[in-house]
Amino acid sequence: MTTDRAPVGVPFRFARWLLVRSAGALFVLWAVATLTFFAIRLIPGDPAEAILGGPGSQASDEALAAVRAEYGLDQPLAVQYLAALGRLATGDLGTSYSLRTSVSTLLAEQLPGTMLLAALSLSVAWMLALALATWSTRGGRVPAAVGAGLEVVAAALPHFWIAIVLILVFSTGLGWFPPISTAGPAGLVLPVVTLALPLAGFLGSIMRESLLDALEAPFALSARARGESELGVRLVHALRHAALPAIGLSGWAFGFLISGAVVVETIFARPGLGRTLLTAVTARDIPLVIGVVLVVAAAYIVLTVLTDAASRLADPRLRAA
């Protein structure tokens, strides 16, 4: 009986897990769209003026009334909200007020640049965090103190300050990299380092504590008793367990990088979702703001599911559960 039911139970549990995840994703997207819709309305100004070019356009009252009627801005706020949800439910993100272009087209153009920037920054942050955690736990008070200090300082540094210092040193002073993001690989170096440093400090602190615990765990003591070298214990056994908390936080790290991209893409004049979002908020471009936020939220959900799967692959205890 047990062997007959086991294969049936696994697909059922997976289907239930997938259903719960899907329902949670839909709820998050609805909440994000709702909060964004009402938050952008709290910004002072008339959306009709934004459609006609902003307050400086000096649009007539007749033109403003025509625009409000065309876009449904003369309807009650609740009616506008339901209409916006209806369009989003069909996959229609609308047309940008300020750029007069489909929001889907704009997002398709800006998304790859930001995803590349976030992926490279996350990879660099992981490498720096692993290197710092491994070096600071090799023994001795000096490496531990220096490693802890570097982690705290790096995690506390704001992105705009890092960007300014990097531009002054490596662009203005040494001339190694361009001050603005260009199409080549050299234009990615300073933006990637700017985003990666604070995240590396945070991940490094978590990895260092987990690595210290793993090195004193029973499986590490057993490996040493079998004659395995200290380097082998670290690389084969301890580092995998030390990386588990950081893997679980990679979804949060992605959101951290996207929020930082708003500052970094603006400073380095790099096209992307962050810079597009800042411009859209300034122009009260409601469809574009909602579109950018929804895409970021969807990417965050997908990455969270992937990190959950990666944690299960790396931790046998989660696979057994």
Rank of each mutant, 00 (worst) to 15 (best):
T307A: 05
R208E: 11
V264D: 15
V103I: 08
V263K: 00
V20P: 04
A83R: 10
T114I: 11
R234F: 03
G113V: 07
L244D: 06
A39E: 05
V32C: 08
V289A: 04
T182R: 00
V189D: 12
E151W: 04
W252Y: 07
L128I: 12
A321P: 10
W161G: 04
G9E: 12
L132T: 07
M115I: 08
I167S: 11
L239R: 06
P245M: 02
V8Y: 05
A84V: 04
L239H: 07
D315R: 05
S210N: 09
G173M: 04
V289G: 04
P271S: 06
G86Y: 00
A69E: 13
V8R: 04
L88V: 05
F12V: 10
E216C: 02
A225W: 15
L257A: 09
I164N: 05
L122I: 10
G255W: 03
I51T: 14
R16T: 03
E209C: 07
G232T: 13
V263N: 07
R87E: 09
A280G: 07
A59G: 11
A39V: 09
V169F: 04
T3Y: 06
L116P: 01
F38S: 13
G272Y: 07
L306N: 05
M115E: 08
Q110S: 08
L288E: 15
R234I: 07
L199E: 15
P198R: 01
L277G: 11
Q75H: 09
L203E: 15
L128V: 10
H241D: 10
S104W: 05
F38D: 15
A25C: 06
P185N: 01
P316V: 11
I162M: 02
T90F: 00
A78N: 05
P76Y: 13
R5F: 00
V10R: 08
F14Q: 14
A15P: 01
A183F: 10
F177W: 02
A297D: 14
D61H: 06
L26N: 03
F27E: 12
Y97A: 14
L18E: 07
L64N: 12
T266S: 15
L73Q: 10
A186G: 03
A69F: 02
E62G: 11
W126P: 13
A314T: 07
T266C: 13
I258Y: 01
W176K: 09
A78C: 02
V142I: 13
F256P: 10
V142Q: 03
L306D: 12
A321I: 03
A125G: 07
D213Q: 13
L303P: 00
A320T: 12
A131Q: 02
H241A: 09
D46Y: 00
Y81F: 14
V152P: 00
